[in-house]
Amino acid sequence: MSTVQSSQTNTPSAVKSSISTKELALTGMSAAILAVISQISLPMPTGVPITIQIFGVALVSTVLGWRLGSLASLVYVLLGAVGLPIFANFNGGLSAITGLTGGYIWSWPLMALICGTRLRTGSKTLNTFFAFFFPIIGTLVNEAIGGLQWAALAENMSVLGVFTYSMTMFIPKDIVLTIIAVIVGMPIRRVLSRQL
C-alpha cells in the first residue's frame, strides 16, 4: 500500500518536469514563427542586416518562459545550422553561425533563457519591472556576443567601432522592439497559461 501511495505522489512532479505534447507543439510553432520573422530584414553595407529577430526571440520567451523559449530558439538555430534557409535573407548553414553575424544568431537561446526568466516578488510593481528588466538584459547580452564575434572576424572594424555602430543602428531599436515584445507577449502568456 505504501509503495502505491509513493508512486502516486511522485507521478505529478515527474509529469510536470517533462514537456507535454501541447508544449512541444508550441515550441515547434514558435521556432517556425522565428523563421518567418527572420525574413523581415534590411540589408546594410556593413554586412550586418537590420532585422526584427530580437522582437521574435523576446516575444517567444515572454510567452513561453525561459524553458520553452530557449528550446524554441535552440531548435530554430539548429535547423538553420544544418542548412535550412531560415536565417535572415534566407541564409542557412554552419557558415551563417561561424561568420560575421553568427554571434547574434547562436546566442539567441541564451537570450531567450534570460528574457523568459520570471521573478515572483509579491509586489505587482516589482514583478512588472522584472518582466521588462530581464528581456532588456537578454537583448544586451545578445548584442554583446554578436558584436564581439563581428569585431573578431571583421578586418575593418574594431570592438569600439562595432560598439559605436551598434549603439547607433541596433541597440536602441532592439531595446524598443524588446519592450514591445514584452507588452504584446504578456497577455498572450496569461491566456496560454490558462489553456495549459
Rank of each mutant, 00 (worst) to 15 (best):
G93E: 12
T21H: 11
S20H: 07
T9V: 13
E23D: 13
V48H: 06
K16C: 07
L100M: 09
T121N: 11
S13P: 05
T62H: 06
A25H: 04
V159F: 06
G103C: 00
E143W: 05
L26R: 07
S107N: 10
I137G: 09
A14H: 09
R118L: 02
T3S: 15
F129W: 08
G103N: 09
I19P: 11
L192A: 15
D174K: 07
G146E: 04
S123D: 10
V162S: 05
W150T: 04
L196P: 03
Q39D: 15
G146M: 09
I137S: 11
I19L: 14
S158F: 10
S73R: 02
T11L: 14
G80W: 06
A31E: 05
N89L: 11
G116E: 09
R194H: 08
M169L: 12
I105C: 12
G56F: 02
N10C: 13
A72F: 00
V159Q: 10
P172G: 09
V75K: 05
A88N: 08
L26D: 01
G99M: 05
A144C: 04
A131S: 15
D174A: 10
L68C: 05
T101L: 07
L177G: 04
L84R: 00
I175R: 04
I50V: 15
A154S: 15
S17D: 09
P45L: 05
L113F: 11
A151M: 09
G122E: 06
L84K: 03
V36H: 08
Q8G: 03
R190G: 15
W150L: 02
Q39Y: 14
L177P: 00
V184Y: 02
M186D: 04
V82R: 05
V4H: 13
A181Q: 01
F170Q: 01
T164S: 12
R120L: 02
F129R: 00
P49I: 14
V75S: 00
G116D: 07
I171V: 15
Q8A: 10
L153C: 09
T101D: 06
S6H: 11
P135T: 01
R194P: 01
T168M: 09
S17G: 07
S61K: 00
N156L: 08
L74N: 02
Q195N: 14
T98W: 10
E23Y: 03
I54Y: 06
K173A: 04
F163R: 02
T9G: 01
L119I: 02
L153G: 15
L42N: 12
T164L: 11
